[in-house]
């Protein structure tokens, strides 16, 4: 990509003060700092998931035996819906990066189109997660209102390898990790939508650049990045 960052400037000028040595704007730098702190939170969550998983390795449930539902079908399709969700989130990340690219060419029409598609992808993901939660809570009998064998924070109706404490920790981490990530997706969708409204109003045309799209884009890619890890460490391993 072109821009300040790809120019060769000698170190004395770069670090001599009066300018950003990284050649990035204040807003972008702060978005990166926020993402690092958020990444540390998610890193801690996933590491503690690993901790519990290793501590209760003998009774930890197998995700493939729990997540085999697919909406509108009754066939046994292990992990297929989560894989579809992952794919949708990656695609919405792609539409976001295309919106950023269109912003660098000051192409308002294309920015609007790609950003709108990103919002749609995000909404699809949030709704899928709601469906995933309801089918997880419903338990083996598939009825969400029979509270006797529904999954809660304190109970997991899907037995682990030998029953035992692993199954309960598994449920707690499911609700916490996917819930925390889902909150991020929801706020990301809201942010993208606000920026989309600004694009439609022509605000960034007036300012002269679409860097705001790039900044929310960073946040949106981060959500995708976290999901890649959640998908591996919660569902696959």
């Amino acid at each position: 990509m072109s821009g300040e960052a790809s120019k060769t400037i000698d170190n004395t000028t770069l670090w001599g003060g009066g300018r950003s040595p990284f050649s990035v704007s204040y807003g972008k730098m702060m978005m990166w700092f926020f993402l690092i702190s958020d990444a540390l939170t998610f890193g801690a969550l996933l590491s503690s998931l690993g901790f519990m998983r290793h501590k209760f390795a003998d009774t930890w449930p197998v995700s493939e035996e729990i997540f085999f539902h697919f909406p509108f079908t009754h066939t046994h399709l292990p992990l297929m819906y989560v894989a579809l969700m992952t794919f949708i989130l990656i695609v919405s990340s792609v539409t976001m990066v295309l919106a950023v690219e269109a912003g660098h060419r000051m192409n308002r029409k294309k920015v609007t189109m790609w950003l709108a598609l990103t919002v749609v992808g995000g909404l699809f993901f949030v709704c899928s997660q709601a469906w995933e939660w309801s089918s997880f809570i419903a338990g083996p009998d598939g009825i969400i209102s029979t509270w006797g064998d529904n999954a809660t924070l304190a109970q997991n109706p899907y037995p682990g390898k030998n029953g035992g404490p692993g199954a309960v920790h598994y449920t707690q981490f499911f609700f916490f990790v996917t819930g925390f990530h889902g909150t991020h997706v929801l706020s990301g969708v809201v942010l993208n939508f606000i920026i989309l409204l600004n694009v439609l109003k022509g605000k960034y045309e007036k300012v002269g650049h679409y860097e705001m799209v790039e900044k929310v884009g960073l946040y949106w890619h981060f959500i995708d990045l976290v999901w890649v890890f959640v998908f591996t460490f919660y569902y696959l391993l």
Partner: peptide, 15 residues
């Protein structure tokens, strides 16, 4: 203040 964001544009060919 240097406006780094204004410098981030690229041409159609680069796009």
């Amino acid at each position: 203040i240097i406006e780094y964001s204004l410098d981030n544009h690229h041409s159609e060919e680069d796009g």
